[in-house]
């Protein structure tokens, strides 16, 4: 009878230990199982570049997508550059077959945001002209990437 008790104790004790291990393991990573999603590293990386040259107060505060699959999307502009492309670490992830992974980026310049093509396959257009070097973007001027059109707004 005594040995029966020992066997039962060992059996349930082992199962309890196994589950304690699982529970303890889950607790150590609880913070990223629920909430506190993945850290926004791309933003951090690009922030480094912008902080070197302090952006002056540029009038544009928002980037609004007016045409294409993402029409209606708005991004508020801060001091960090905005990357545009299909790569999932872009600020604005374009779901556009004619866009490249890293298509273009918007950088805060001295007194206006600059658009810069990052060697895309199909090019970036500001108004009717193709962007070949960093070009200042006036408010309301359409930037076209593939089928996506966006503009800067106040």
């Amino acid at each position: 009878m005594g040995s029966e008790l020992v066997v039962a104790l060992v059996k349930y004790g082992l199962l309890a230990l196994l589950w304690l291990f699982v529970i303890f393991a889950v607790r150590t990573v609880r913070s990223d199982l629920w909430g506190s999603g993945k850290p926004a590293r791309p933003a951090a990386g690009t922030a480094a570049r912008s902080s070197g040259k302090p952006a002056k107060r540029t009038a544009a505060r928002r980037l609004v997508v007016t045409e294409g699959a993402l029409a209606g999307t708005t991004i508020s502009l801060g001091a960090a550059p905005v990357t545009l492309g299909r790569a999932d670490d872009s600020t604005l992830v374009l779901t556009d077959d004619y866009a490249s992974s890293r298509h273009a980026r918007l950088v805060p310049g001295e007194d206006a945001w600059l658009v810069e093509d990052l060697g895309s396959t199909n090019g970036t257009y500001l108004g009717a002209s193709k962007v070949t070097r960093p070009t200042p973007v006036p408010l309301g001027q359409p930037i076209r990437i593939g089928k996506t059109v966006m503009e800067l707004r106040r």
Binding site: F21, A25, T28, A43, A44
Partner: peptide, 26 residues
């Protein structure tokens, strides 16, 4: 934005917990 940038470094590593759990597993 800047508050989130601290996250990657925070709590990284944690080799002590790993050792503890390995001891538990053994």
């Amino acid at each position: 934005m800047s508050a989130q940038t601290i996250a990657p470094g925070a709590g990284a590593g944690r080799r002590g917990i790993e050792l503890l759990l390995i001891g538990f597993a053994v």
